[in-house]
């Protein structure tokens, strides 16, 4: 019973305090190894050298993940000249990993796709709830995070990207 009270207290404390803050500091993101669908490898920090990166966790069986992908591909193409790279980190396990590349190709998506079949990256970044978007600044600080997707939220994603790109121009 004492433990229950402790858990509730901790959860309530965090929930209320986070909710009460307008701008939660999301800290710096660690460097992560990215194994790409085409067999090549890169790291997040290498990608950040050319500009901000928008990470998103997804899986072939995740319906809202697929809904947001169309918009993310558009933003990848619209803002790549300003340095933005969209990286989709796939969470399919080896049971269905083979279908990932076929799906991406059939949709004609241009963003980078990385595979994370043992959820190493998602565990490090707390991306288990999908889709899970992380907008990372060039200095590796997280500027914005979002979990889940409802139609219409693509506008908020766009606003966040444009806001970040604008702040980089001013700098």
């Amino acid at each position: 019973m004492r433990n229950i009270k402790l858990i509730i207290l901790i959860l309530s404390f965090n929930m209320i305090s986070i909710y009460s803050q307008d701008n939660v500091s999301l800290g710096k993101i660690p460097n992560i190894d990215l194994k790409l669908l085409n067999g090549k490898k890169t790291t997040l920090y290498k990608l950040l050298k050319t500009g901000p990166v928008l990470l998103d966790f997804w899986a072939t069986w995740c319906k809202p993940c697929k809904q947001v992908m169309k918009h993310l591909n558009k933003y990848h193409n619209d803002y790549k000249n300003q340095g933005l790279t969209v990286v989709m980190i796939n969470q399919d396990t080896p049971r269905s990993l083979g279908k990932v590349k076929a799906y991406i190709n059939s949709k004609g998506y241009d963003f980078l796709v990385s595979i994370d079949p043992n959820q190493q990256i998602s565990k490090k970044l707390n991306g288990q709830i999908m889709p899970n978007l992380i907008l990372v600044n060039e200095d590796a600080t997280v500027k914005w995070r979002h979990q889940g997707y409802m139609p219409g939220e693509e506008l908020e994603i766009k606003e966040q990207i444009e806001s970040l790109l604008l702040s980089l121009k001013k700098d």
Binding site: T93, P94, R95, G98, P117, N118, Q119, Q120, K123
Partner: peptide, 14 residues
Amino acid sequence: YEVWGRGLVLAQLD
């Protein structure tokens, strides 16, 4: 948690 190949030998998931 490790995944080697397509998991025929080892695929560790949660």
